[in-house]
Simulated scan of single mutants.
Amino acid sequence: MMKAEGNIGFTLYKRVEIETATKNFNKAQIIGEGGQGTVYKAVLDGTVVAKKKCKEIDESRKMDFMQELVILYRVNHPNIVKLLGCCLQFEAPMLVYEFVENKTLQELLDLQRSKRFHVTLGTRLRIAAESANALGHLHSLPHPILHGDVKPANILLAEGLVAKMSDFGCSTIDEKTQSMLKGTPGYIDPEYLLEYQLTAKNDVYSFGVILLELLTGKRPLSKESKTLASMFQEAMMDGTFHELLDSEIIDEASMGVLHQIAVLAIQCLALPGMTRPVMEQVAKELRRLALSDEVQQCPQPSLVLEGLNFAVMGSMCTTSLLYTEGNSTGVYDLEKKTLMSTEFAR
């Protein structure tokens, strides 16, 4: 392990450290699998980490790793998972990120749907505002970072249910045509499906779907494969949107406030995409609604279930995430380039 010169806190790990931490990638260490890869629980220098091994083997992913390293290292935001270091001595390089001890928004929504937790409208709006704030920050950088797979499973919830945007495996600098489909069914912008050209407005659309989930408690795709977005848009047009709202939150605010949230979600889903608001505007409106007197009058009850306390998990560990990008022949030996790149990113 060594520190990158001039980059305080950024660590380059050795291969043996990663192998030891993951017990040679033992299957018993797997804590999650998804479209972007497999996540392993591990320990580095006494710190709990999660190592993500991506499934993609496209040769073009080689340079994507270096790009992601540069753009993510310069990001420092309370609602974005922080890049801490990397290892470049495998066939596929790996990134070390801050790890959040608590669960994801997806898990919280699933528990809410099962009626095992009650998540107030105020809490939902705050989580949404923090997530929107994170995306707004990424989009407003000198070289904008586009997430490409915005969904509840990629919004981690730290102590106090503080939202942290994670999993930038699909991130790219500026608008760029993609060689393969990015995103998750139910959250993918219809416009993106036309040309596979990722833009900030695609992230806005995906976030709009999340807003609908928070507002209705429903999943993005029905059993009949009808999208929540299309159902809600139809309901807004015929004036029956209130029938889709989550009954748990109807009494926590006036119909006027709920209508404002619904209108904001519809704006995020608008076609053509150029008419959608920017994420900074969305975040500002959500903060305003979350701080309104009638929303604030309903405090969030403790979220405790079988020993799990979602809201208060004790002190959050200093932890990290290890991501593997791509898989190609030969071993990456890019330490010098990485040091130069991260220094340039400063």
Rank of each mutant, 00 (worst) to 15 (best):
I8R: 12
T22I: 02
T22V: 07
N26E: 13
K27R: 13
E33Q: 12
G34N: 05
L44E: 01
G46F: 02
C54R: 03
C54D: 00
I57N: 12
D58N: 13
E59C: 07
E59A: 13
K62W: 09
F65A: 04
Q67E: 07
Q67C: 11
L69W: 02
V75K: 05
N79F: 06
L84W: 03
Q89V: 02
M94C: 09
L95R: 01
T104A: 06
T104E: 03
L105S: 05
Q106L: 14
E107M: 08
D110E: 15
R124K: 15
S140N: 10
G148C: 06
I155P: 00
A163H: 00
D174V: 05
G183T: 01
Y187A: 01
D189T: 00
P190C: 10
L194I: 12
A200C: 07
K201V: 05
V204Y: 00
L211V: 09
L215K: 04
T227P: 00
T227F: 03
F232K: 01
Q233D: 14
M237A: 15
F241V: 10
L245T: 02
E248W: 07
D251Q: 15
E252L: 08
A253Y: 03
Q260G: 11
I261V: 15
I261P: 06
V263E: 15
A265Y: 08
L269R: 03
E285T: 13
V295L: 10
C298F: 14
L303R: 05
S315Y: 11
S320Y: 05
D333L: 08
E335L: 02
L339C: 14
F344N: 13
